[in-house]
């Protein structure tokens, strides 16, 4: 069953088409990789999907329901939630309070929310930092906090925007394991990642964006051998 259908989505900023006629479908339970050079329009697509702004054209269908015009909080309540490329910790709140904010999406009880939060903090491996202020965490742990916080909202579809950006290889590896772990729990994920090797490893399917347009789509093998993709990446930074 398709959990998410993007159909002919465009997003214009003035004259700039950050997304232009993007269409693809995502099956439930899978990890969909979303790649493309800097400025390709990946984050913009996340913003459209999660309601930060309405797409200029096209439709977004989540679980069979048209999402255009729904605010991010409604989108989250319906089971779709995103992380931020530029992390957004609630700096003056503790780690557990940050994650509780996510958990309160499904409950009014602080006690229940705290239990959910502690569980997710354990999942991402931050249990030793439960009572630290979020603002005091180093970048690697901030990224984990982002993931714990969205997991606490009990999503069906997670949108992860470069959660490995700026991490060292060991930290990235932890996140990879975390993503696969989340998949094993049956949560669908769309993952933006810059590093080709990583995305090849974890994705069931990959969509490639370039200059706002969908360049191609396919299994990791198909994508990595696609001449247009090779050109786009060689043209940029792939070493």
């Amino acid at each position: 069953m398709a959990i998410l259908e993007i159909s002919h989505v465009s997003k214009f900023f003035g004259g700039l088409a950050a997304n232009s006629d993007v269409s693809f479908t995502m099956e439930a339970g899978m990890i969909m990789g979303l790649i493309g050079p800097n400025g390709a329009g990946k984050t913009t697509l996340f913003n459209c999907i999660t309601g930060y702004y309405p797409p200029s054209k096209g439709e977004i269908i989540f679980k069979g329901r048209r999402m255009n015009g729904l605010q991010p909080d409604k989108v989250c309540k319906l089971g779709m939630v995103r992380t931020w490329q530029k992390v957004r910790p609630l700096a003056k709140l503790s780690v557990v309070d940050n994650v509780m904010v996510g958990a309160l999406c499904r409950t009014n009880s602080l006690k229940v929310a705290r239990a959910i939060a502690l569980e997710q903090i354990e999942v991402v491996g931050l249990s030793h930092k439960t009572d630290f202020l979020a603002g005091s965490l180093p970048i690697g742990e901030r990224k984990k906090l982002e993931v714990a916080r969205v997991l606490a909202t009990k999503p069906e579809l997670l949108l992860l925007d470069e959660v490995m950006g700026g991490l060292n290889p060991a930290e990235s590896e932890e996140i990879v394991r975390l993503i696969l772990d989340i998949k094993a729990r049956g949560v669908s994920q769309m993952v933006i990642e810059h590093d080709m090797k990583t995305i090849m490893r974890i994705s069931d399917r990959i969509v490639v964006l370039n200059s706002g347009e969908k360049l191609t789509e396919g299994s990791p093998e198909e994508v990595v051998h696609n001449q247009a993709v090779i050109d786009a990446y060689l043209g940029e930074s792939h070493a």
Binding site: Y52, D73, R82, W84, L90, L93, M100, V101
Partner: peptide
């Protein structure tokens, strides 16, 4: 401060966009 309201208020104070994405009706 000791209720969901307090958590939501502070989340909005700390980062409105993050709060919005976590299900808070701003």
């Amino acid at each position: 401060q000791h209720s969901k309201l307090g958590y939501y208020f502070q989340a909005i104070r700390e980062d409105q966009d993050a709060a919005h994405s976590l299900g808070i009706n701003i």
